[in-house]
């Protein structure tokens, strides 16, 4: 076997293709799938998830600490149960609270964790008790209008 100029060109071609794949994998996408060994899962129940989806980020103080791995409806309590996979490097007290928040005005929804004060930390399979569901824009507007109407009603008799 001899080396030929074709081999050189094919070598360049394959290198460029590999470079493009590396570019797509690391510059365009983030390697945001946590490996199975480095996570622990906890669950939390919410009265309203809004538009939360599987794979949505879990953040604490604005830093990505985990992912939403499962969403299901609990029929006997009529609430939604969300499974969160959290990176083992981060630990949270058992009385931490979870909120469903929105990034920006129209952005995607994510789960925000606010740490509590207990000494013990959440373990694998644990539950976050303190939760606050999504703020749904329609409800908010409804409350605002209702509140305003009620306020006006109160002020009239004076």
């Amino acid at each position: 076997m001899k080396r030929t100029t074709i081999d050189l060109w094919v070598g360049i071609f394959v290198a460029l293709g590999a470079a493009a794949l590396v570019f797509l994998s690391f510059q365009v996408a983030t390697q945001n799938t946590f490996s199975r060994n480095s996570i622990y899962t906890v669950s939390a129940r919410f009265d309203d998830l809004g538009g939360l989806k599987v794979q949505a980020p879990v953040k604490s103080a604005g830093v990505l600490v985990g992912r939403v791995t499962g969403i299901r409806f609990v029929n006997d309590a009529f609430v939604a149960e969300v499974t969160l996979a959290i990176d083992k490097r981060y630990t949270f007290p058992t009385d931490s609270s979870a909120k469903i928040l929105t990034s920006g005005l129209l952005g995607d929804q994510y789960v925000g964790l606010t740490p509590g004060a207990e000494v013990d930390n959440l373990a694998d399979g644990g539950t976050i008790e303190l939760t606050q569901g999504a703020i749904v824009l329609e409800k908010l507007i409804g409350q605002f209008l209702y509140g305003k109407a009620a306020g006006e009603g109160e002020s009239k008799p004076q």
């Binding site: 994998s25 983030t30 390697q31 980020p57």
Partner: peptide, 12 residues
């Protein structure tokens, strides 16, 4: 924004 939205497994 791109990195936050493009998923390695689902997209690439």
């Amino acid at each position: 924004q791109m990195q936050n939205s493009v998923d390695f497994r689902a997209d690439i």
